[in-house]
Design a protein around this nucleic acid. Structure first.
Lengths: 193, 193
DNA sequence: AAATGAAGTTAAACTAGATTAACATCTAAA
DNA sequence: TTTAGATGTTAATCTAGTTTAACTTCATTT
């Protein structure tokens, strides 16, 4: 039925007519990236909002000392972008890099504006998507404050079992806000209970 | 011109007609709370999205050990809610409590849905509001990972000078994710440089 | 089959920030 | 005017997590 993964995804939020679906697909760009390629580089303006159809990316901040801090991983059926940079056309705070070969569907800022005008239902779609993202971001702040690294790791494994198996351990440590050495210690503690 | 602070605020995002403004005002509830009163209690379902017209609130999570972790402060012209609870009608993760006597304008879930149907421009308004909230939440996660408590305190002072003067220091410590004793130490370090 | 490098482990020494506890200051009520 | 509660400070001790560094394991290339 839904030949396109994006349309399938959208239909779970809002119902588009056939014409709207055609218009939408005419305004998106299909792209493939190889493992390790950058979709967005910190300092550049982020030109797209991206819907991932296959693969895996990491969004990270690199500080002055050259340390990576991973904000999020994204896999199939998730969105990724530096939203602040995309909306305000300011230099990106984050890098988005492929952890696997990745296929995605891009919306540029101009196409996005046009689509919002022509298909107002998309305002609702993206309102809801951003609401969810915001809610989970708030929860993450609280978890980082109130839980130990070990507890955060256990919750990560439960919440994102797929991601845990697909990305190297040192990236998980970075996502959790700890060093790879300390995550290694936590894992051995959990093994030898 | 704009007799109502809410309409004034909204007009900076989207232009409403006089009829739309009237409809909107007919669907909101004006409320006053005293200092220390709760607007939302953790565990209850959060029934409203609130636009603050005067006063100050704190949104915090209380963990199993009874420790408060402040997620955010809100003052005039800001919104406050437990969005996850409001949208999904699930028990609230957070408490929202007044730090000062506070006046606010409430949108219930049903009124909100009705307003979205009748004034589609509001979808855009709230999309943009939530986008901003999400962007700053992401930045906060990164700051908590990559900066020391002293640096976070300095950024807090620069970013929210008004709030710093209005809330007690132990709440700022909680917002920063540190103890009041450690914030006290940081302040004396900054004084006697 | 050896060599290179990326990813993960272990352990010792170290530090940012927590905990505990005693004390200080301020305010508002009685 | 005293008292009591809330807020803030100082200092000693403690700990979760970092740093550094040496070592292991595994996959890929030559």
């Amino acid at each position: 039925m839904n030949k396109d993964p994006l349309l399938g995804y959208i239909s779970t939020y809002v119902k588009l007519t056939a014409e709207e679906e055609t218009l939408l697909l005419s305004k998106v760009i299909y792209r493939s990236y190889l493992k390790d390629q950058y979709i967005v580089q910190q300092g550049d303006v982020c030109k797209s909002i991206n819907f991932i159809t296959s693969g895996c990316t990491k969004t990270f901040y690199m500080n002055a000392k050259g340390q990576e801090h991973i904000v999020s991983f994204s896999i199939e059926d998730w969105w990724t972008s530096d939203l602040g940079s995309f909306i305000n056309k300011t230099p990106a705070d984050f890098n988005i890099q492929c952890v696997e070969n990745t296929k995605l569907i891009q919306f540029t800022n101009e196409n996005m504006e046009e689509l919002y005008e022509k298909i107002p239902k998309l305002e609702r779609l993206f309102r809801k998507i951003v609401e969810r993202a915001f809610i989970s971001s708030q929860k993450r702040i609280i978890r980082n404050f109130s839980l130990s690294a070990k507890e955060r790791y256990q919750i990560f494994k439960e919440t994102y079992p797929k991601i845990e198996q697909r990305v190297p351990q040192y990236m998980i440590a970075s996502y959790l806000g700890i060093t790879k050495e300390f995550l290694s210690k936590i894992k051995s503690q959990l093994l030898h209970h």
